[in-house]
């Protein structure tokens, strides 16, 4: 049984069919890439999986459990973390606090324990901090610990968002265009991290990516979307040679050339 199975998912916005009958299977332990031109519906698919959008039909099943109608804040508790295409960080908080928020759902201490800062709350803070420091070490964020997000460069902000998602200790992580806006050095780091996330942390990865080099580098399997429908899936090579995929990307270029 796949870790995540999306079946016949459809989502409309007014007259726009953002997703039509999308099927997708993500196996445990793999890195699965989702590609497709802008507006293909990749982010919409993420939003449906993570509970922000309600699809009109179809289902998303995670570990045998239907999560299609689950509230967004319950999704991470089931083991799915995500990042956002347009950074969604807590901009006026420090890097440390941002990542510490990843530990929120693991908290056990009660309101009164926290309000009185009893030993249970204290231990919980120390424990959360220990886990957060592991993530900080993993992503080399040490120099930025006490910096406020709004003052950080874009690449570092993206890194913090990844760190925050990892601090949730998920089984599946959804990365929406993690390499967009990064320079080549940062992109290379990202590729290594994704490898490590898969190999060392044993977290399954589903990512949206435009950069084909990154996809070839990290992805085990690829699914291509165009106009809200799956047009191809398979290994990176298979998908890239698929005529519909070439057509979809070429078509986009044609359109761009024509309108220019």
């Amino acid at each position: 049984m796949p870790l995540l199975e999306v079946t016949e998912l459809s989502k409309k916005f007014g007259g726009v069919h953002a997703l039509t009958m999308v099927n997708l299977q993500v196996e445990k332990g793999e890195v699965h890439a989702l590609i497709g031109p802008n507006g293909a519906g990749k982010t919409t698919l993420f939003n449906c999986i993570s509970g922000f959008y309600r699809p009109e039909r179809g289902s998303a099943v995670f570990k045998g459990r239907d999560i299609t109608r689950t509230a967004p804040h319950k999704i991470p508790r089931l083991g799915i973390a995500r990042t956002f295409q347009n950074l969604e960080l807590f901009r006026n908080a420090t890097v440390l606090d941002n990542i510490m928020l990843g530990r929120y759902m693991h908290k056990r201490a009660s309101f009164f324990s926290e309000a009185l800062f009893l030993s249970k709350a204290k231990n919980q803070e120390v424990e959360a901090r220990r886990r957060v420091e592991e993530v900080i070490d993993f992503l080399d964020l040490q120099p930025y610990r006490d910096r406020v997000i709004a003052q950080l460069p874009f690449g570092t902000q993206k890194c913090v968002e990844l760190a925050r998602a990892l601090a949730l200790d998920p089984e599946l992580i959804l990365l929406d265009e993690p390499a967009a806006g990064l320079n080549s050095e940062e992109t290379r780091d990202l590729c290594f991290w994704i490898e490590d996330i898969k190999e060392d942390l044993e977290i399954t990865v589903l990512l949206v990516e435009h950069n084909m080099r990154v996809v070839n580098e990290v992805a085990d399997r690829v699914t291509a979307l165009d106009f809200g429908a799956v047009i191809a899936h398979g290994t990176p090579e298979e998908v890239q040679q698929h005529p519909d995929v070439i057509q979809a990307y070429l078509g986009e270029d044609d359109g761009a050339a024509a309108s220019a």
Partner: peptide, 9 residues
């Protein structure tokens, strides 16, 4: 949005 994705109700 991010708060929800951290499991914060």
């Amino acid at each position: 949005v991010a708060a929800q994705s951290m499991g914060i109700p």
